[in-house]
């Protein structure tokens, strides 16, 4: 039960800097918020309006960038939940919730908080608390309570 056992503070911070630079590039280069949920929905026409090729380019870049790093590093550890049901229910809730709440970890968390937006702060606190609560409930159920 020791915290920090698996932590990678330096790699996390370095990766965070890259994410922040990417978001800065979207803001200062294109005048857009790098909110992945919004861009992904708009890329395929499930946001506000018709499919948008610029958003699609950003979305295609995500696996490209992750793939390049994984190739250079000789593999990146990824452990998925073994059950498919939580993934499907989780995906539905993430998709619907991020649209209803106008953003996710990147839009509200990174872009909104760095701008001291009260809306983004309220959203980030809400999804963090919901995440903590959900994992706690899942852990209790796994323990057979």
């Amino acid at each position: 039960m020791t915290a920090w056992q698996t932590a990678m503070p330096l790699a996390g911070f370095a990766g965070g800097l890259l994410i922040g630079l990417a978001a800065a590039m979207m803001l200062l280069g294109l005048g857009r918020i790098a909110g992945v949920s919004g861009l992904a929905a708009r890329a395929i026409g499930l946001g506000n309006g018709a499919p948008w090729p610029i958003a699609a380019m950003f979305v295609v870049g995500l696996p490209l960038g992750a793939g390049i790093v994984s190739r250079i590093a000789g593999g990146t550890p990824v452990h998925f939940p073994t059950a498919v049901v939580p993934l499907v229910i989780g995906g539905l809730l993430v998709g619907f919730g991020t649209r209803l709440g106008s953003g996710c970890t990147s839009g509200h968390g990174v872009c909104g908080l760095s701008r001291f937006s009260p809306r983004s702060l309220a959203a980030t606190i809400s999804f963090m608390l919901a995440g903590f609560f959900t994992v706690a409930v899942v852990r209790l159920m796994e323990a057979g309570l």
Partner: peptide, 21 residues
């Protein structure tokens, strides 16, 4: 909507460990 959406997103995030990015 903002709060309800964020809460639903958080539940999905906690179930899967995944957000859109």
């Amino acid at each position: 909507s903002l709060i309800a959406g964020a809460l639903l997103f958080g539940i999905g995030w906690g179930l899967s460990g995944l957000c859109p990015g």
